[in-house]
Design a protein around this nucleic acid. Sequence first.
DNA 1: TGTACATCAGTGAACGCGCGTTCACTGATGTAC
DNA 2: TGTACATCAGTGAACGCGCGTTCACTGATGTAC
Lengths: 208, 208
Amino acid sequence: MQRTTRPYHHGQLREALVAAGFDLARKSGPDAVVLRAVSRATGVSHNAAYRHFVDHQDLLNAVADRCMRELADLMQRRVAEVRVRDAQRRARAEVRAIGRAYVEFALAEPGLFRTAFACVPVEGDDLPVDRPPEAAQPGPYELLSGALDRAVEVGLMAAERRPGAEYAAWSVVHGLSMLFVEGPLRALPAAEREHAIDIALDVVARGL
Amino acid sequence: MQRTTRPYHHGQLREALVAAGFDLARKSGPDAVVLRAVSRATGVSHNAAYRHFVDHQDLLNAVADRCMRELADLMQRRVAEVRVRDAQRRARAEVRAIGRAYVEFALAEPGLFRTAFACVPVEGDDLPVDRPPEAAQPGPYELLSGALDRAVEVGLMAAERRPGAEYAAWSVVHGLSMLFVEGPLRALPAAEREHAIDIALDVVARGL
DNA sequence: TGTACATCAGTGAACGCGCGTTCACTGATGTAC
DNA sequence: TGTACATCAGTGAACGCGCGTTCACTGATGTAC
């Protein structure tokens, strides 16, 4: 791939720009994902990007999408690691793994986490145009909903408790993440932080 | 106060600048609280502010403090409105009022809410220097902790559940606020949103 | 009561920065004949 | 197989913007004598 003399036509410029934006987001959060810096990092003039994105916002959306996908990937990986036989205990472990993965991601990759939520297309809104390939992959919300559905199927959770449960679960992990990543709890010692996360997840698990 | 010819010395410039910043924050969030706009709104040259703040950051901190105080005020007002005799039910209603007030504030004043958390001094960190007058007033965290303490005193909540309970409660309301104010749920219809809030608060109440 | 003077609280012009965006352009590529 | 030409994907210079911050300054105020 890496040639000594880069050809005039890059060939994968869009992907390269998004990747560069992703790196910038990881290091410094959403505000660092600016057109000029992204072009600079890709080694391309700063308006080449306009061949692939209509806008700065358009680029930021693409980067945010990738951050969101990264979060979903971690959640799926953590769910796949669950090694429990008993169906009910398994369902419980999976929901918990999803919640923990959410917070784990936020703490391990604050820049990506903040970028993922910096400029998301609104949930449930009709997507702008055709984007079937990546829309097919389940996002964090779908993963959580699926896990809760399984908890009901398996008898772990009462069916009448199911509607709206995802909002409660999502809120706790999102709140924990925000408070620890960029909120007033960001300086809490790691041990105390882990304890707080455990307690919060317990409370929700008990409430559901 | 309002004289036709403003005297050269403003007299209350610091307060006036913070007030202008507060208005800007209310309308357009933390990013709108910039030195020049604040000075402009106050009718003063854009570096007069340097007589009262060392920095742009310093000004933003002062505005954020005021936003946080506004949030705490609403919480206190909502708690004061609770009209329940029975001690246990009262404690429960107060905790709930605090949680609801938090989300209510975020939804009614998204700009102030975001500003309050845009650049908060870290919780538990030793405050920069001498600021005894406003440090005396209880912040949102203190109000919540107090309400939970009362729930234990009154026998509503088991004492062994108390440690860390504020993290769980805070996380839910903060998560709800973030998801609805600037997160992926910001376009949820109001009715569904209220329902989601109720359910999430129920879940936590049951879990505690 | 008057006055010199230090100090405080503003002003106005200017600097440099990085940004998004637009313009006219050039180099590379694909395709119809 | 060759060639004209439309189209695509980059370049480089420039514009205008608003910002934070600094500089030398001036007007107002308080205080020692």
